[in-house]
Simulated assay, not measured.
Amino acid sequence: MDTAAQRRLILVVEDEPTLADAVVARLAAAGFDTIHAGDGPSAVEAARTHRPDALVLDVMLPGFDGLEVCRRVQSERPTPVLMLTARDAESDLLAGLGSGADDYLTKPFSMRELIARVQALLRRVELVRQQTLLSTGREGGRLRLRGGDGDAARELEIDHAARRVRMDAVDVHLTPIEFDLLDCLARRPGVVASREQLLAEVWDWADASGTRTVDSHVKALRKKIGAEWIRTVHGIGYALEAAPSQAAPRATESAWARGEPGSVP
């Protein structure tokens, strides 16, 4: 039993009784508290009433679908979401990520992998919380990057402490995992990060079984900040294709990128 899972409440949203019972039972065996909802409206109400630590959310639901559930839940209170989908099309996966889901599993899946994904989501949320507390009161922590040339040049600003992204001074709304992915790439502009490295640093996964998850999130991120910012290195991974802006304090940027003491973690 994972002691970190104790007293964590997971809302399972699944309308197929056999699968719902199996997921609830496996989560309970792993040390989680659980509640169950079988349709869209009751899922939104359960999230509002019980304030779960995470959702395991099926896409196909009566009432309204899991995408709408995810949008409504995230608009009221940001919550980690692992989405379950029977469809494997890229457009369906991007729609799920675009609605605010942090990760997805394609049916059929193993219960062992489901538990590992939920645990990784919760560890990442706790890590973000700790980093935010450490960042409070520190100066700097902003990274400004420039992409393109001449009149086509654009500036991307990432505020690590505030977890805020702006493109040409306009806010870009990212999901928590999209921010973490961009933040990870931005620490080393131009340096290629392998899919396995991104899984370990962003998703806290110890194996390489979810490399397609990385690809799907990169596609979703490109739609929001522009495809030109992230370069694909085929067979390896991705790199943020940008240079530090002259407007940004160079010392702050380099200290942050190197992880020196006193810099934002």
Rank of each mutant, 00 (worst) to 15 (best):
M1W: 10
T3Y: 10
Q6E: 12
L9S: 06
V13Y: 02
V13W: 04
E14G: 03
V23R: 06
V23I: 15
R26W: 03
A30N: 03
D33L: 13
G40R: 08
S42T: 12
D53G: 00
A54P: 05
L55G: 11
L67K: 02
C70F: 02
L82V: 04
M83F: 04
A86P: 00
L93F: 04
L93E: 05
G98Y: 01
T106C: 02
R117M: 04
R117N: 03
V118Y: 12
L121F: 11
L122E: 08
R123A: 06
V125P: 00
R129P: 00
T132V: 02
T136V: 11
G140Y: 01
D149L: 07
A161G: 13
A162N: 13
M167P: 02
D168N: 14
V170E: 14
A186M: 04
V191W: 01
V192I: 08
A193P: 00
R195M: 07
Q197L: 08
L198F: 03
A200C: 01
E201D: 13
D204N: 10
G210L: 04
H217P: 09
H217L: 15
A220P: 02
G235K: 11
Y238D: 09
Y238N: 03
A239M: 04
L240H: 02
E241C: 08
E241Y: 00
A242G: 09
A243Q: 13
P244F: 09
S245Q: 06
Q246T: 12
A247L: 14
R250S: 12
A255V: 00
A255I: 00
A257I: 08
G262S: 08
G262F: 05
S263F: 02
